[in-house]
Write a protein that binds this DNA or RNA. Structure first.
Lengths: 232, 232
DNA sequence: CCATGTGAATGTTTTCACAGCT
DNA sequence: AGCTGTGAAAACATTCACATGG
C-alpha cells in the first residue's frame, strides 16, 4: 500500500516469517481499499437490519451500495465465509462480523485538538457516539479558549495533550487546528501514543509508521469535481 | 473508472470514434485518482510560491506530499510537459497550469441544502471562497429555518432549489441534510442541473451519469482506522 | 435452482529505469 | 550533472465465470 496522498499513511505489514500456519486472510495483507469500504457495508447492513430485512444477497447489497456483487464477495472473502449458498448473508450476523473485524464492538475515546468554529462543530456533532467514538478530551493552544466548557468537557492546554492521551489510553486524535499548527499537533499526538489521526487541516501530515492518517478535505473534493463540469 | 463507493460516481468517457487526431492526453481518459491528487499539488505549490520558492523538482514536491517523484511526473504527464530538464518545475507556472486544468481559475457558485448544525458550520466556513467556491444559496425543508438569515444569505424553501440552480447557472451542490432527506435532495439538485455534489450525509446517493459525487464521511474514516489500531 | 467463494483473466495504477534535453 | 517525461515492468484491484454446496 502506498503512503500519503489519498492513500492514507499506514501501519507496515506485520507479516513475520514464522507465521506460516495462519489462515490465508491473516497471512497476506488486506488491502486498505477493502478496509475503507467495510464501514459503508456495516452502515448499509444496519439499515437493512433496522428495516427487519434478515438476509440479503451480494447482488442486493451491491445495488444499494453502487458497487458490484463480485466486489462485495471478494472483500468479505478476505476475512472468512459469511454467506450461505442459495440464501445470501444474514444481515445481523454480518454486521456483527464486520464490526468485530473493524473493532467497532467497543467504544473508542478520541482527543480533539483545535476548538475554533470547526472544532466546536465536531465537538457538538452527535454522530460519533453511536458510531463507536466518544470525544473524551479537548485541547487548544489559545489561552482565550482554554478553560471554556464545550458540551460537558473543558478545553485543556495543548501542552497537556501527550500526557493526557497516554494516561487515558487514547489512541485516536482529531486535528481541527489552523493549518500552521497541524503538524506540531500531530507530533504532540504521536508523543501521546496516537495510532489514528483524522485530519481536517489542509496539510499533509508527516507521521511515523504505525500511525494511520485520513484526511477530511472538502475543498479538495470540490476542486477535483470541477474538472468534470461541462459548460461554464 | 468504477462507479460508487470510494470511487465517486463519474461522468462517462466522452471518447468518440472519430477523435483519432487529438493529442494522447485528450484521447484516453485521465484516471480520476489523478484528478483527485491535483488539488493537493496546487495547494502545496501555492505555499511554495508564497514562500518565494520559484521552482521545485518532482523529488522535492514528492517529499512534501508524501508520494513518489515518479507519480508526480506521471500525473502531470497526462496533461502536458510542465517541467524543465535539469531544473524542475516553475511553481507559479504549475499552479496556474493545474488551476486551469481543474477550472479553478474562476469562481464557482454553490448551492447548500440543509442548515442544521453541520450546514451552518459549512455556510460560515471561510475556506471555500479563497478556493474558487462561493456559497450562493441556502435551502432547507424546515419551515422554522426558512427565511432565517445565515451570513448574508436567506434560507429558501427546498422546493425552490431546482429553479434557482437552473436560473442562476449553479452546477455544484452541497448536501448537509439529515440522511433521510439526502436522496430526495440530490434528486432536486439533479432536476436543477447539478453536475457535482459534495455529500456530507452518510448515504450512498443514486445519481445519473454525468453527475460526480464525493463523500465527506468522517465517521467511516474513523471506523476504518480502528482496524489498524493495535492494543486495546 | 440460487447464490457463495474463488481461481483465472482482465483492467488499472504505480514504480522502475533510462533516453534525451538543458 | 541534473531532472524531466515516458516506455516497459511490476504491483495492485476488479471482474468474470463457474465449481460447489445448501
Amino acid at each position: 500500500m502506498g503512503s500519503g496522498l489519498l492513500e492514507s499513511q499506514q501501519v507496515s505489514a506485520q507479516r513475520s516469517d514464522w507465521s506460516t500456519t495462519l489462515p490465508p486472510a491473516q497471512i497476506g495483507d488486506i488491502p486498505d481499499i477493502v478496509i475503507r469500504r467495510l464501514p459503508v457495508y456495516v452502515r448499509t447492513l444496519k439499515t437493512l437490519c433496522d428495516g427487519q430485512v434478515g438476509s440479503a444477497s451480494s447482488e442486493q447489497l451491491a445495488e444499494m451500495l453502487g458497487v458490484t456483487a463480485a466486489q462485495i464477495r471478494r472483500d468479505l472473502s478476505y476475512f472468512g465465509k459469511f454467506g450461505k449458498q442459495g440464501k445470501g448473508y444474514d444481515t445481523r450476523l454480518l454486521v456483527e462480523a464486520i464490526s468485530h473485524i473493524l473493532k467497532l464492538d467497543r467504544q473508542w475515546p478520541v482527543a480533539l485538538a483545535g476548538l475554533g468554529n470547526l472544532g466546536r462543530a465536531i465537538a457538538n456533532y452527535r454522530g460519533f457516539s453511536p458510531s463507536s467514538f466518544q470525544i473524551a478530551a479537548l485541547f487548544d493552544r489559545n489561552p482565550v479558549h482554554i478553560g471554556q466548557q464545550v458540551g460537558d468537557l473543558e478545553i485543556l492546554p495543548i501542552g497537556e495533550l501527550p500526557g493526557f492521551m497516554r494516561h487515558e489510553g487514547i489512541h485516536i486524535g482529531i486535528i481541527a487546528t489552523p493549518k500552521v499548527h497541524a503538524q506540531e499537533t500531530a507530533e504532540l499526538m504521536v508523543a501521546g501514543g496516537v495510532q489514528a489521526i483524522l485530519n481536517y487541516a489542509p496539510v499533509i501530515l508527516k507521521v511515523p509508521e504505525g500511525v494511520t492518517v485520513r484526511e477530511i478535505d472538502p475543498v479538495s473534493a470540490l476542486q477535483s469535481m470541477t474538472y468534470y463540469i461541462d459548460e461554464a
